[in-house]
């Protein structure tokens, strides 16, 4: 569950450009919209959302698992396959996006 949420959060913030905020190292401040012709870093927000989704997803998954019966294993297996797809897609998208940029 955690890996699935992390993969989804990474793709939403990277491909969808949703929920990003920026650090401006020259001015040393955080902004929601990066001014043009300024060095702005969005990696911190992308990493933050991905890690928050990972931790929240892992905790929710552990909670559901502790309360459910045998069928949860099949759900977990399906979520793993989706997580692998999302994480692989995220990695491929990042490489193509950076090479193109």
């Amino acid at each position: 569950m955690g890996a699935f949420c992390a993969g989804a959060a990474y793709l939403v913030t990277t491909a969808g450009r949703v929920g990003l905020f920026f650090y401006l190292p020259v001015e040393r401040r955080w902004v929601v919209v990066a001014p043009p012709r300024t060095i702005a870093m969005d990696w911190f927000s992308r990493a933050l959302w991905t890690l928050v989704a990972l931790v929240v997803g892992a905790l929710v998954g552990a909670w559901i698992e502790s309360r459910s019966s045998g069928d949860w294993r099949r759900v977990t297996a399906a979520l793993w396959q989706l997580a692998a797809l999302l994480l692989s897609w995220g990695a491929v998208f990042t490489v193509l996006w950076l090479l193109r940029g």
Partner: peptide, 9 residues
């Protein structure tokens, strides 16, 4: 970016 994607694994 790969460093972020490694975390779930």
């Amino acid at each position: 970016n790969l460093a972020v994607l490694i975390a779930p694994l």
